[in-house]
């Protein structure tokens, strides 16, 4: 079953990507690599690639970087034991919600007239910053990215938290005897101790960034004027909205290549971590 539903499609993708075909007409026409050439001439492809990359970079900084900071704080001695569990659960919760629900939620939060964000800006005297967050091509992609940070930082934090808990206690005790500060402990013990997990988190965040689809589909559909298009929606649009199934397949091959490479890196490190 895995062979049929997981592997076969990858092969078929390569095959379809060499044709021009539409979903509703039975004929297909061999065009060789023309679909790939078209992709590289398509402005939307570069916008998509840029957006995916932007999403990946910001997510790594925020989710992995900031997530790590939170994890270290939660494992440190500044927060009471009961509060730790509470904070962890609260931060983690958004990652459980479906992307559709969160996307719709933020669709309202970003609404220019009744949205929460503009309301708060008004309230704290920054009314001039008010804009149509998803309708303004300068802000739309950042608005979507911000939502994902809200949703997933807690998730990455929990992954790192579990890794920190696996670090042997003796290491910290030894450091305390030497009089190390919390900051020094974090730099010299915690971060090296969870290095592999940090790499894994970085990679899954990058892969997640290149799989991006639902957020965009629910919130902006790639608009305004393609400014929030990503590879996933670009592919979907080509294959299913504009009947260019072959073109869509060619884009899918590119998505496949990117995510596959990133996954290889992940597996390598995950294995190293397990042994």
């Amino acid at each position: 079953m895995i062979l049929v539903f997981v592997y076969l499609p990858i092969v078929q993708n390569f095959y379809f990507s060499l044709f021009k075909m539409s979903s509703y007409s039975p004929t297909k026409q061999f065009v060789g690599l023309a679909n790939y050439r078209m992709i590289f001439e398509d402005d939307v492809f570069y916008i998509s690639l840029k957006n995916n990359t932007l999403y990946a970079v910001i997510s790594v900084i925020c989710q992995v970087g900031f997530g790590m900071l939170l994890a270290i704080i939660l494992e440190g001695s500044f927060i009471g034991r009961k509060l730790k569990v509470f904070f962890r659960n609260v931060y983690f919760m958004p990652s459980l919600l479906s992307v559709t629900a969160v996307g719709l939620m933020f669709y309202f939060i970003y609404n220019p007239n009744i949205g929460l964000l503009n309301g708060i800006l008004e309230l704290i005297g920054l009314g001039d910053l008010k804009t149509a967050w998803l309708g303004n091509p300068k802000t739309a992609i950042y608005a979507v990215i911000a939502m994902s940070q809200w949703q997933y930082t807690g998730y990455i934090m929990v992954l790192l938290l579990v890794a920190i808990q696996k670090i042997p206690h003796e290491q910290y005790e030894a450091a305390e005897i030497d009089g190390a500060s919390s900051f020094n402990k974090a730099i010299h013990i915690t971060i090296p101790g969870i290095r592999d997990m940090i790499v894994v988190c970085t990679v899954i965040t990058v892969i997640g960034a290149f799989k991006l689809f639902t957020e965009i589909y629910v919130m902006t559909q790639g608009g305004p004027y393609n400014s929030t298009q990503v590879l996933g929606t670009f592919m979907y649009r080509a294959a299913f909205a504009y009947d260019e199934m072959g073109y869509g397949s060619a884009i899918a091959v590119i998505i496949f290549a990117i995510t596959f490479l990133a996954s290889l890196v992940q597996i390598r490190f995950a294995y190293k971590g397990n042994n």
Partner: peptide, 21 residues
């Protein structure tokens, strides 16, 4: 490894062939 390899593949990339299948 064949089974684990499935972890590497993004479902999205298989959309068109899966649909036809």
């Amino acid at each position: 490894y064949l089974i684990l390899g499935g972890l590497l593949l993004s479902p999205q990339a298989s959309l068109v062939p899966l649909f036809r299948m």
